[in-house]
Nucleic acid binder design. Sequence first.
DNA 1: TTGGAATGTCAACAAGGCTGACATAAACTG
DNA 2: CAGTTTATGTCAGCCTTGTTGACATTCCAA
Lengths: 168, 168
Amino acid sequence: MTDHAGPGAGGESLLYLTDEQLRKGIEAMFFAYRGFTADPDRILAENGYGRAHHRALHFIRRCPGTTVNNLLDILGVTKQSLNRVLRTLIEDGLVESRVGNRDKRERHLYLTDKGAELETRLSEVQRERMRAAYRAAGPEAVAGFRKVLEAMMDPQLRAHFNRLKEGG
Amino acid sequence: MTDHAGPGAGGESLLYLTDEQLRKGIEAMFFAYRGFTADPDRILAENGYGRAHHRALHFIRRCPGTTVNNLLDILGVTKQSLNRVLRTLIEDGLVESRVGNRDKRERHLYLTDKGAELETRLSEVQRERMRAAYRAAGPEAVAGFRKVLEAMMDPQLRAHFNRLKEGG
DNA sequence: TTGGAATGTCAACAAGGCTGACATAAACTG
DNA sequence: CAGTTTATGTCAGCCTTGTTGACATTCCAA
């Protein structure tokens, strides 16, 4: 893995990165993302949902009462796409949509108990995979992992990312 | 970012991982993957291709002469899906399919000059994003990043991953 | 020679992106 | 108050990319 840290501890010095090393990182992202989504995908398929539903459930749990517009920003899809997903989740009683108090144009989204239950099941297997990977890789690796991922995001998404409640 | 590494420096000891920390890692994967694919997606859209084409081009470049079956394993899609993509790439003169010598049922896949050119353009922007993230995060972070990603893969995919030529 | 493997192809279907157009209600602005 | 903007929902249609099932071809190997 040739750390090749350059001179001092602190620094951004030059970091030699061959095309091959970078390609390997690209492939690592590709294969890891497959693993990352594999477990929840199975549960979703059993219940007749897809990844789009998972994403909505995840962020509604994380930001209870979020508006549709905020969710659109986070997910980066069109309102038509999101609406299709939300409609089924609401019809199926997993998500509740409440008209806003201050601004009655806005809809605030919440998980119902049933929605929270499915979200928990999905999240559980995914967290378990993360936990196992974190443990296998060790604490320093975890810190590095998150640094690189954060640096890889588009700035606007990084802002969203950092705005989400940090639990640790 | 409160790394919270647990007691001593060295160890795998117990690594306390709250659900919130794990969720944050999940979100990091989600947002980072968006960034990861954003740049090539733009180039692909200009040329009327999609991510599936990119994946095929990437692995054909990495494994020149690979068979369709091998590619199916790596990509994890059905032969019908892959075939649709390969057909357009072959029709457009980006990929060449040569009948095998030893086993004439097999098709060996190669990029044409034109295909290599597009792959290079796609790869370039993606490598540039990786390079920037790696540099921003620092060498130790890169090592950790790859450790966690590798631990996150399904074993079978990890085997594929490790079989790919390592440039560093 | 026959079975099975590797490949290709056709058809149909679904999820989940997209655009464009249009509707409604509420809020804001002058 | 009139007009505009904002937030949301909805309809219709299109595309990519995944799926399954069925079937043809080719050819290695027993």
